[in-house]
Amino acid sequence: MIESLQYEFMQNALAAGLLASIVCGIIGVYVVVNRMVFISGGIAHTAFGGVGLSFFLGISPMIGALFFAIASALGIGMISKKTKLPEDTAIGILWAVGMALGVIFIGLTPGYVPGISTYLFGNILIVSSGDLHLMLVLVTVIVSVIFLLYKGFFALSFDEEFGGLRGIPTGYLYFLLLCLIALSVIVMMQAVGIILVIALLTVPAAITKQFTYNMKKMMIFSILLSMVFTVCGLWISYELNIASGATIILVAGVGFVISLLFSKRSLY
């Protein structure tokens, strides 16, 4: 592993893994405590439509995915706040329609379309410097917004009604949180892929939730845990020459099972 770090692709992969860990540690805690796992899955899968459109238009897939992810985040927010349509119905529809759009656009793109599986299952070994710069920008945005509005998001998560009564703009914060989830999905897309994003978003927070009830500690330990998962996964996938994204997720899954053995809370 150490000697492999002399290669630029390995350095980039490691940097991408660590950046992704920061967002999944922080945003993952909100996703878990607010029970927004299905919403996050919906946002991630809708982003595939953007990947397809980007291939069709010949632009960077990250840009298209970002646009679709934000649009689906706002769409889900609008549907759940402004209409009486059940939220999970709306998410299910967006989820599948986004994927279908991606497939159609890729079909319409002339010639061979390379690396579709990269976006579905992730390939952290082909992260370019350009991708890394975009990831760095997104991570900075996410971390700053959370840092600035931590108390507001805390109130939103614990007791939205009470927060609203105290003058917290919970409606806007909810939309903002959905957008932050969308940005996180894009940061993590290269590392683990659209389909596997939910696992990396939920596993570290689900583990730390069993051991602390302090949300800030949950975030810090979730970041550290997901760094361990990504680095271990990267190393195993390099040594055994197997898919990096799937390996990272499997390591996280094993970590979750082990955590259950040490859990202080009874889960049944």
Binding site: V33, R35, F154, F162, K209, M218
Partner: peptide
């Protein structure tokens, strides 16, 4: 509010629950 209004599993201490009453639009920052 009514008893069922929030998640009992939520990672929050008694202290933070009570302090939440001191939040507001400006205090949020």
């Amino acid at each position: 509010s009514q008893y069922k209004a929030f998640d009992r599993e939520f990672p929050i201490s008694v202290w933070d629950v009570v302090l939440m009453a001191r939040m507001g639009l400006y205090e949020m920052f």
